[in-house]
Nucleic acid binder design. Structure first.
Lengths: 205, 205
DNA sequence: CCGACTGACGAACGCTCGTTAGCAAGGTAG
DNA sequence: CTACCTTGCTAACGAGCGTTCGTCAGTCGG
């Protein structure tokens, strides 16, 4: 379904078959680097070695690019969460897995994360509302895990909401500094961050 | 020196004396809401009940507004840090105070934090380099605290760099959700977050 | 009462943006 | 071979951007 993305690299000159997904990938790279309003369609076209109007054979509008990126990304985050959360697991296991998969995604999908966390405010309705709903769903689900852990005595925090915010945003920020060429792999970072999350929640060892 | 800012509220109609600081404050509010590239000078002018060219009596350029905001904010963060850090304190006290003042600033100066963390990439040189240098100084100073704590056995983390990133970004994110009208005051949030930081670093109780 | 200064203004600038229309080249199906 | 469909192109659009200039009303010290 998806064309192989070139990660953070910029396609150039190659002029290999232009498709909607190729355009989307170039937009993703540039949106992540310069922001949605800071990126001109002419820059996306240049990165693809094509004139600006040609883009319109493969997309609806500039705003559609942003909407598609945000839609796919927020949906994937929720899929991740529900894929690893087993209701029968103890709270500590649930939190560890939820934090790990969340941190892992932000290490392996840096561009998506940067765009979603910076340019979400440029979405128009109804896309903005839908995105907020999905974000809230994830937020509430994570908070529920912490709340249950506090009730069972596995966790110890004054405010589950506060801890939930802190853990989420801590994981989100991985996208701001992680590099696949760095000393740690995405898996190692995700493991350590899930450990941070457990400590933060006051998980009893 | 500074005119009293109207926090997140928007000045309107009042037409009280236009000064450089009043313009800066309106720009701060709008940059925080819509981003630097997403904000037009005409919107800042409208918020001040003035025509766009009049702004130029009180500022150099749009980019100068951003530069001034970032300069003042990053300088204040470093001042905060050095004001609370006593080299004779044990690592746990140093980390608690550093995290508390950092979280507190992000709760009480939300607009500045949002702009600095979103639109810093729109800075041109040399402003961008200067900002990066100050950010790095704060980052390295906090990391040094953690490293020392690991050496003394007060902390327990695999990678001080990773823990430092996590703690910093966790505090930064306070600006994204904190509300002065919420259930918790800025002081309470800062206290809890500094507790999070200590736990995250594996501080021995 | 007058001179100089401050500051908001209308008009206009050059530029870039996102987007549309129409045409031409190339591959494909019949 | 021909008709068609796809797709990149040039040209052009209307709008909005940040910024500059000259003007003119208001204010204030003398």
């Amino acid at each position: 379904m998806r064309t192989e993305p070139s990660d953070l690299a910029t396609r150039r000159v190659s002029r290999a078959a232009l498709t909607p997904d190729v355009v989307l990938d170039a937009a993703l790279t540039l949106f992540a680097r310069r922001g949605y309003h800071g990126t001109a369609l002419s820059e996306i076209a240049e990165a693809l070695a094509v004139r600006t109007p040609s883009l319109y054979n493969h997309m609806g509008s500039k705003h559609d690019l942003l909407r598609t990126i945000v839609d796919r990304t927020t949906a994937a985050v929720l899929d991740d969460f529900h894929a690893v959360l087993d209701p029968d697991d103890p709270p500590a296991t649930q939190l560890r897995r939820a934090a790990r998969v969340y941190a892992y995604r932000h290490a392996t999908h840096r561009r998506e994360a940067l765009v979603v966390n910076r340019d979400t405010g440029s979405l128009e309705e109804p896309a903005f509302g839908e995105m907020q709903a999905r974000r809230r769903e994830h937020e509430h689900a994570l908070r529920a895990v912490i709340t249950r852990g506090v009730e069972t005595g596995d966790f110890a925090v004054e405010s589950p909401a506060l801890a939930s915010f802190a853990i989420r945003e801590m994981c989100v920020s991985v996208a701001r500094w992680f590099s696949p060429d760095g000393a740690l792999t995405a898996e190692q970072v995700a493991d350590q961050y899930s450990g941070f999350a457990l400590r933060l929640a006051g998980s009893s060892p």
